[in-house]
Design a protein around this nucleic acid. Structure first.
Lengths: 103, 103
DNA sequence: ACTATCTGTAAGCCATCACTTACCGTAAGT
DNA sequence: ACTTACGGTAAGTGATGGCTTACAGATAGT
C-alpha cells in the first residue's frame, strides 16, 4: 500500500503492459491476457501485485473480475517523487552556474 | 535514459536509500556508503544503475566523484505517471457514483 | 444437476540480480 | 618516486521472482 510496492510493481515490463492496457478503461482478466505474451495465470499473479500496491482495484461482474486503475497507489508514488523534484532542480541550477563561472 | 530504467532503479531498497541520501545534497561515494549496510563496491554498482537511468549525475573533484540528484530521469518518470492520473481519477469517480446509485 | 466459462492458487523451474572479495587505475601529498 | 586515499570493475555465489502446468472454486446458462 506504500510507494515502495508501487515501484516494485511497475518495474516489471509485463506488469507495466497490463497497467498501460488498463489506461483504455476497466477490463476483465481474460481480456487483458489476450494480447500479452504470457499465460493467463501469470496475468492473475501480476494483477495481485498491482492490487496490493494500490495501483489497481477490482470489482466483480458475474464470474468475471473487472480491474481498473486506482488513484491511491499512483498518488502516493507521485507524492514521494515530488520530494526529490525541488532538490533536483536546485542541483541542476547550481551545476549550470558552476559551468558558467568557468567561462 | 527512459522511465523504465528509473522504475527498475528505484525498485531496489538499497538504491532508494542511496537516492534518498542524496536529497541532503551532493555527496562522494565513500560518504554515501558509510551509513549503508552494504559494501562500498555495491554502492558503486548501484550508482551506475542510477546514473544510467538519468536519476543521478556525476562530477569529479580530485580523486573523489561527487554524485547528485539529476532532474532528467525524475522528469521523465513524472511525465509517464501523469498519463495515468486522469484515467485513475475518472475510474474513481465512476465507481463512487455507481455505489451511490445502489442506495 | 450438469456443463462451460472465468479466474485465483500451488508447486516447481530457471534466469536475473544484488552482494561479496579481490584487483586495478588514478589523483594528491610527502 | 612512493604512499595513501578514493572508487570503478571482474568473477563468483545465493536468493528472489516471474513463468509454466495442473488444479480448484465460483458463477451463469440449459
Amino acid at each position: 500500500m506504500a510507494y515502495e510496492h508501487s515501484l516494485v510493481a511497475l518495474a516489471d515490463p509485463t506488469r507495466r503492459k497490463i497497467f498501460e492496457r488498463l489506461r483504455r478503461g476497466p477490463q476483465a482478466v481474460g481480456r487483458l491476457a489476450e494480447g500479452l505474451p504470457v499465460s493467463r495465470p501469470a496475468v492473475s499473479q501480476h494483477l495481485k501485485v498491482l492490487k496490493e500496491a494500490g495501483l489497481v482495484s477490482e470489482s466483480q461482474d458475474g464470474a468475471r473480475r473487472i480491474y481498473r486503475i486506482d488513484p491511491h497507489g499512483l498518488g502516493q508514488l507521485r507524492q514521494w517523487l515530488d520530494q526529490f523534484w525541488d532538490v533536483a532542480l536546485e542541483n541542476f541550477k547550481a551545476e549550470a552556474e558552476k559551468k558558467d563561472r568557468k567561462k
